[in-house]
């Protein structure tokens, strides 16, 4: 469905949507972040949030079950599922939405992760395209994305000056528009043409580029034992910023958190985990197959640009630039990939 919404009627539409919980980017403590907001707090003018909204669908801590000893001394286990609550993520960037669609592949497939899907199915993604790049390190077009890609989105808004061009791609998206049909008009041919040229124009504005990305996955195959990883990881401090801020990184750990030993009580939880941490691959024997930071950097690059491509035929990188902007020592994934690509 394609519609036009004037900026004047925009607040009316938002007011209608606000019957469910809305997450939208707001400034919290000087930083953009996706938080629960009321209708008045919603804007379409914002830079990239520090954290992608992946934390809403795949929270850093997910409760699986609760366990305890009951009075007879026998164990009692209660499953904990995410609560029933419809919500909208308003203003998700196309790259972050693409990240969500990548996670769908990981948590879907032959085995569906019920915790993930419970949250995923309850959330509607309303994207706002990027007329101008929201970060100085955006490079989505280099990894098969675009500032107006609709992969993973239910609704995409394009700012056309006085209006928003509203496109819906799923039934969930249609529902949001149909909630207040009167506010929307059908697009005129000129507006359609304008949209197309605006989308094309936006693609030329990207600040960063990586050429010949296609050459990287086959190249990586031969570089497992290369010295390139030693050189590139020299300045790595092995923190977890790059992966925790990444909209596609999805590794996790499951642990039992004991809150009382007698009587026994506790919870089984899933928390984010991070391939850059030394204990990520630590075996209980004490052996660590990825013993140093070179092998961990290699894993991050290989997972995103080789293994994921082999399994899902997609780069596991959406070009949001967060890992570049926030790396404490300026490790730049584009530069690393260029070195991989040009390696002889």
């Amino acid at each position: 469905m394609e519609k036009i919404l004037t900026k004047k009627s925009f607040p009316n539409w938002i007011a209608k949507l606000a019957t469910v919980q809305i997450y939208a980017p707001v400034v919290k403590d000087d930083l953009w972040s996706y938080e629960v907001v009321d209708a008045a707090g919603i804007t379409t003018e914002y830079t990239n949030a520090i954290q992608s909204p992946k934390k809403i669908i795949f929270p850093q801590r997910e409760l699986f079950l609760e366990f305890s000893h009951n009075d007879n001394g026998s164990p009692e286990i209660r499953e904990l599922l995410p609560e029933d609550k419809e919500s909208i993520i308003f203003g998700i960037r196309p790259c972050d939405a693409k990240g969500v669609s990548h996670m769908d592949k990981v948590f879907g497939g032959d085995f569906e992760d019920s915790y993930y899907w419970k949250r995923r199915n309850q959330v509607t993604l309303v994207g706002v395209g990027c007329n101008t790049p929201p970060s100085p390190n955006c490079f989505c077009t280099s990894v098969d994305g675009s500032p107006f890609s609709h992969e993973g989105l239910d609704v995409l808004l394009t700012d056309m000056g006085d209006n928003y061009y509203v496109q819906t791609f799923t039934k969930k998206g249609d529902k949001l528009v149909n909630m207040s049909k009167g506010l929307f008009a059908a697009p005129k041919p000129k507006e359609k043409a304008d949209l197309e040229s605006l989308h094309k124009d936006a693609e030329t504005k990207l600040p960063r580029h990586l050429k010949d990305t296609k050459k990287i996955p086959p190249k990586l195959k031969g570089l497992f034992d290369s010295e390139i990883w030693d050189d590139e990881s020299m300045s790595c401090i092995r923190c977890g910023i790059c992966t925790y801020l990444c909209p596609t990184c999805h590794c996790f750990d499951i642990s039992d958190e004991i809150t009382s030993h007698s009587p026994l009580e506790g919870k089984r939880v899933r928390t984010w985990d991070n391939c850059q941490f030394p204990d990520f691959t630590m075996h209980s024997s004490g052996h660590n197959p990825r013993p140093d930071k070179a092998s961990r950097l290699r894993q991050r690059i290989m997972h995103k640009f080789q293994y994921f491509v082999e399994i899902y035929n997609n780069y596991q990188c959406v070009g949001c630039g967060r890992c570049i902007s926030k790396c404490p020592v300026g490790i730049d994934i584009i530069q690393v990939l260029e070195k991989v690509r040009d390696h002889v």
């Binding site: 850093q60 923190c239 977890g240 991070n274 030394p278 204990d279 630590m282």
Partner: peptide, 30 residues
């Protein structure tokens, strides 16, 4: 706000312990 990325620990010249209390490997397995 903390996401426990441990960047504060990783960047610190004094945080040189081989095993940190927050890492689950702080346990000798023989």
């Amino acid at each position: 706000k903390c996401i426990r990325c441990y960047a504060c620990r990783s960047v610190c010249p004094m945080c040189y312990c081989d095993e940190c209390v927050v890492d689950t490997i702080s346990f000798a397995v023989t």
